[in-house]
Design a binder for these strands. Sequence first.
DNA 1: TGACGAAAGCTAATGATGTTAGCTAACCTC
DNA 2: GAGGTTAGCTAACATCATTAGCTTTCGTCA
Lengths: 182, 182
Amino acid sequence: MPRAGLTTAAVVDAAAALANEIGLPNLTLALLAERLGVRSPSLYRHVNGLPELLHQLALRGVDGLAGAMAGTSGLPALANAYREYAVANPACYAASQRADPRLDEAATRALAPIFALIASYGIPDTGRVHAARIIRSALHGFVSLETTGGFGLPDKLDDTFALLISALETGLQSAPEHTRHQ
Amino acid sequence: MPRAGLTTAAVVDAAAALANEIGLPNLTLALLAERLGVRSPSLYRHVNGLPELLHQLALRGVDGLAGAMAGTSGLPALANAYREYAVANPACYAASQRADPRLDEAATRALAPIFALIASYGIPDTGRVHAARIIRSALHGFVSLETTGGFGLPDKLDDTFALLISALETGLQSAPEHTRHQ
DNA sequence: TGACGAAAGCTAATGATGTTAGCTAACCTC
DNA sequence: GAGGTTAGCTAACATCATTAGCTTTCGTCA
């Protein structure tokens, strides 16, 4: 019997692809093993169980998001990069949204482009955390609803997203006055 | 052996309470049965399996959200009602966000207050679907991040939410011009 | 080239879960 | 108080994650 020649990276790759196809909640080690032409206990040579595999997918999601946003400049470019990554990798994106202390470091890195953007808006220090949360809320909310089919008909979603971005820009520019109030 | 005296409503109630405590993904029929002092097969007398139970929770979430928003007037009141319901019932809220054709009717009802609000903003017909999606994105994004612990420290989250609402109002008021473009 | 050791993948087995089938006894009704 | 309905039970099965331990492949080094 020939070997499958798996590696940790190959297993996580396959898991990401499979989860993106069938949805993260439907990802099972049994399915993944079948897809890889292997029995499920064999996966434990490369990945330390399902929770660990999910953590790897989450890491991939956070890093992928960070990489997608890293090169951008301006809110529209950043927002489009965020959305494109999430739509192309819905399972990794979903995995990355689970709270996990081991993700903190990568998450901070992923947030850097957002904070850089905020700084360029001239928002005072005291308002930056708020601004970052607002941007994340808008982007995550839209992307989450889009990838889970939460919007009814996906008609003209691109237009909605463009409007969301411009509303966000307008809203953020009006924010500094408010943030000084607290 | 005395009977537990369960009903469908009691089972769903307990499931909602339990799921709100331990998180929707951790809800299991075995745990629910234990909580109710009953063996898990007995639950099938009242609920047709786990998927059906999750559907009931989703229905509860949608209806609860609709009820919370129904009496409000103005975006801040609507937004606060939305957030309060979701924070108080995180599992039902999470369940309600799964795409499910059987939820469409209730979902449409739940969206009515949002469309009523939008109409009062004087946004033209062509922009209302966009505006509704934008409001849902902002609210769902914030609430989703809050309830899953997605924001790091929950410090001053109330302030962030207030700022999100005012940014949303500002952004929406600037939207009509854009919506006419399409 | 050939032996040796690490480790990839296997089978067997265990415990948790959801689910179905069928039994029994508690309750409601007449 | 008798009889039927049905709530809750036990037994059983399929699927899953996971562990233990065996086998055999493969790289390495004499």
